[in-house]
Measured scan of single mutants.
Amino acid sequence: MDLSALRVEEVQNVINAMQKILECPICLELIKEPVSTKCDHIFCKFCMLKLLNQKKGPSQCPLCKNDITKRSLQESTRFSQLVEELLKIICAFQLDTGLEYANSYNFAKKENNSPEHLKDEVSIIQSMGYRNRAKRLLQSEPENPSLQETSLSVQLSNLGTVRTLRTKQRIQPQKTSVYIELGSDSSEDTVNKATYCSVGDQELLQITPQGTRDEISLDSAKKAACEFSETDVTNTEHHQPSNNDLNTTEKRAAERHPEKYQGSSVSNLHVEPCGTNTHASSLQHENSSLLLTKDRMNVEKAEFCNKSKQPGLARSQHNRWAGSKETCNDRRTPSTEKKVDLNADPLCERKEWNKQKLPCSENPRDTEDVPWITLNSSIQKVNEWFSRSDELLGSDDSHDGESESNAKVADVLDVLNEVDEYSGSSEKIDLLASDPHEALICKSERVHSKSVESNIEDKIFGKTYRKKASLPNLSHVTENLIIGAFVTEPQIIQERPLTNKLKRKRRPTSGL
């Protein structure tokens, strides 16, 4: 017993010596996670971090007073192994002897410093981030199933929210409404489509400006004509009531908005009720001829604005009016007729031209339509002016008669200019590109209106002035400009410049 007691005391002394060697000089306990400095002193990692955080910048070693920084600290694995072995020896000594260790306080702390507990403390002390800490805590505590279930439920809930957000973003663009038309193969669909197009076009005519009305009406008319041609002859009974509906809707729209509806009346003529396609083609032919005449008058307007600064050229074209007008009339009417003589009366030419125009518009179905009313009214106005011209010709002399006839021709041009508003800008460009020769010939008609105004002003003063002067240069210039014009009389060319000069002198006297 005595020997055993001596041996136990010796073992205890050895353990105490080893414990003092492996103590931390700051906390005076076994080193936890030993860290060595540049001066080869060993301290606990937790104690050194606490010391360095007390001051900004480098701190001093507690043993040798040298500078220490966080970067200079290094882990010493050898001392950590020695500490672990010492703890194992102490545990074995207690089991063999059955005696508690003399320094129970220190031993209890040593026992608490088992490797499992050290790992837990290291995970908390090290600044490795929240995710690494959570992982280490889960690994160190596998015995708690409640914690695992809560963490898994949190992760699953987070994943569910992310997935639901993604699915919502994908589903939202798919919620856009999609309209699908289910059509049938019955023959009544074509008639319904035609009526739908006509009503939609009328609404567009009321909303859209004048520049786009003609294009819309032309497209709708083409669509309706194609649909009529596709149907068989057996379905004509269905077409006639639908066309009557079209007429009623167009008349109502014309009564409500007459000014807006006139812009599309000329282009919509071939959508009118037709028994066969031949009647629609004839109407299209007549409309094309009318559009040609209207576009020519538009060309004359532009030329008149350009040549208004040259009064000499405008005056020299006075007698070329009849010849150029004959050529335009021959090209406007498709019928083959002989040219009228140069010395014939211009009023007779106008009456013949009106007689040619009237039969074209005397179809029984055309008179029933609303768009032809505008053309009939313009023709009636022309006839009224010609009836007035006959009365004026009986009273005035030959020279005054010529000037009045020219004035009436200008009035006719004004009437025809009203129809110019109905034609589109695209048709003007096509006419100029296809028929430049006709445009040059028809330019002379509009330029002549300037000389007509001068004659009217001469009649106000009650006299006409003449001068025997020749202007050969002007006649040559005008002959080169206009290709299809005829030779003019030299006496009238000489008379016109004198009248304008005298007018300039006598205007201030009349004002006084």
Rank of each mutant, 00 (worst) to 15 (best):
L3R: 07
V11E: 00
I15L: 01
A17C: 11
Q19H: 10
K20D: 12
L22Q: 00
P25K: 11
C27S: 00
E29N: 04
L30N: 00
V35Y: 13
T37P: 00
K38L: 02
F43E: 00
C44G: 08
K45S: 04
F46T: 02
L49R: 11
K55A: 05
P58I: 00
S59P: 06
S59G: 08
N66E: 07
D67M: 13
D67L: 12
I68A: 07
S72E: 14
S76N: 15
F79Y: 12
F79G: 04
Q81D: 15
L82C: 14
K88M: 15
I89D: 00
F93N: 00
Q94N: 00
Q94R: 04
Q94G: 07
L95D: 06
T97K: 01
G98P: 00
E100N: 02
E100G: 06
Y101H: 03
A102Q: 09
N103S: 04
S104R: 06
Y105T: 04
F107H: 13
F107L: 03
K110C: 10
K110T: 12
N112W: 07
N112D: 15
N112P: 11
N112L: 02
S114P: 12
P115I: 08
E116W: 12
L118E: 07
S123Y: 03
Y130A: 09
Y130L: 04
E141M: 01
P142S: 07
E143P: 04
P145C: 03
S151Y: 10
L152M: 04
S153H: 11
V154S: 09
Q155L: 03
S157C: 09
S157N: 15
G160A: 06
T161I: 05
R163F: 11
T164E: 03
T164P: 04
R166N: 14
T167C: 07
K168F: 04
R170A: 09
I171L: 09
I171V: 11
I171Q: 05
Q172L: 04
P173K: 05
Q174R: 10
K175W: 06
T176F: 14
T176D: 10
T176Y: 09
S177E: 08
V178M: 08
G183I: 08
S184F: 07
D185Q: 14
S186V: 05
A224V: 05
S281Y: 12
